[in-house]
Design a protein around this nucleic acid. Structure first.
Lengths: 146, 146
DNA sequence: TATTGTTATACTCTATAACTATA
DNA sequence: TATAGTTATAGAGTATAACAATA
């Protein structure tokens, strides 16, 4: 591996990431604001939407890397607004399990769409050749075996 | 432009960005924490380091998209710690102009290095062919005329 | 009066500590 | 006792409003 190649590619990639962060951040944060959704609440929905079964608050806290009280309050607010439901675990009444609702899925989809909107807008600003090259550059990375 | 191509590339790029965010965020936030540096303070240093001349607080507030009081407090803390210096503008004593110090440059370089560290680590985990393709994908985008 | 910053105040989100209820 | 979650409290960061100094 030639160090200088990696060096210059590192700079290129960093520059590209910065560009994309600016481009994709706008719509996304606007949508978060419109939904009055905090970062923790968004990550909570994102975790629940992919979960096979309702999750306890401890599991959420662990997964999100956020304190238990912070999750507890974020979830309580989400519940009040109908984005999740929270129930006592029948087998252990100390535990409360949380699941996303249809309304929650809908909200998360909106946030996801906002995140993709900036990405798509950026790509539409490129020409076909640039998109082709980018696609060929990303493809092998995303499809590689870890 | 075939819509489906853009669709799938949008998804690929979004996935890639998410991957990189995780990969590059760790070192960076660790370094910010080590320097007790807030986001606004970091952006302040980043703006000043590229500025040709000292900037007034109003200009900083505008550039960073942060309220004047927030900038005022962020700068005061940076000044106390020697990362910037702040002086009255001789021509208008209402205005105070801020400039980065050597210590400030050094701190910002550390933050920049932390941000690049994750990017570089990621690239080093790829094989030569993957890096080549990525490089060819980014090159025309970064060098294009706006 | 208008403008540049600063200080006062209130709000959001967070973490640690104290607490409640169940196991 | 130990554990799951909630409530109390304090800290960091922000914005709007009130203020001080200079133009």
């Amino acid at each position: 591996m030639q160090a200088s190649d990696v060096d210059s590619l590192t700079k290129d990639l960093a520059q590209f990431l910065k560009l994309m962060l600016v481009e994709t951040g706008r719509d996304f944060f606007k949508e978060m604001e419109a939904l009055s959704m905090s970062m923790t609440q968004m990550k909570t929905l994102g975790t629940l939407i992919h979960a096979d079964e309702p999750l306890g608050l401890g599991a959420l806290s662990e997964t999100l890397g956020v304190s238990l009280p912070a999750v507890s309050r974020a979830v309580e607010d989400l519940r009040e607004r109908g984005f999740v439901k929270r129930e006592e675990d029948a087998r252990d009444r100390r535990s409360k399990v949380v699941a996303i609702t249809g309304k929650g899925r809908h909200a998360f989809d909106r946030l996801l769409a906002a995140r993709l909107a900036g990405t798509r807008r950026f790509l539409e600003g490129l020409d076909e050749e640039q998109r082709e090259a980018l696609s060929r550059g990303l493809e092998p990375i995303l499809r590689r075996k870890a």
